[in-house]
């Protein structure tokens, strides 16, 4: 029951945020892992536009379960281990996006790029060592805002 990594990738496959909660992936392999997963998710995602429910949001990659959710041009991809609840992860992604939305006010890809450090801080308040810490947006932002000043 743990999140292994969180990736934010845009439609072009460029990583916009990557956070790993496992030491079993050496740094050298992270890029490769990212590109493989992104390719898989994107290839499914492109058909997603045809119908809302064309594909389910889960796939398997090696020993990870991958859950992804698309918001405009950004894919939020979460890799979890076997006994994690996928549906709950979808909720978590949404919760993360909403928190970003509160913080930036209608968040977009550029916000995340240019305020990478704040996004990391917010994520840090929400996930620690792969475990969900807090999902209350007010509490998360209350803590994260201390960083800004």
């Amino acid at each position: 029951m743990a999140i292994k990594f969180i990736l934010l990738v845009n439609k072009q496959g460029q990583t916009r945020l990557a956070q790993y909660f496992t030491e079993s992936i050496p740094t050298s392999e992270k890029r490769q892992l990212e590109s493989e997963i992104v390719r898989k998710s994107l290839s499914r995602g492109s058909d997603y536009a045809k119908g809302m429910h064309a594909y389910c949001a889960f796939l398997r990659h090696n020993s990870y379960k991958i859950c992804y959710r698309r918001y405009a041009s950004l894919f939020f991809i979460v890799g979890v281990d076997d006994d994690e609840n996928e549906l709950s992860m979808m909720d978590f992604i949404h919760c993360f996006v909403e928190t970003l939305d509160w913080h930036f006010g209608n968040v977009c890809e550029l916000d995340i790029m240019f305020h990478l450090d704040s996004v990391y801080v917010i994520l840090d308040e929400m996930v620690c060592n792969g475990q969900i810490v807090e999902t209350n947006k007010r509490i998360v932002l209350g803590e994260a805002s201390k960083f800004e000043t």
């Binding site: 429910h53 064309a54 594909y55 996928e86």
Partner: peptide, 9 residues
């Protein structure tokens, strides 16, 4: 259900 995510899980 028609929802593929639910089907999958």
């Amino acid at each position: 259900s028609k929802e593929n995510n639910a089907k999958y899980v």
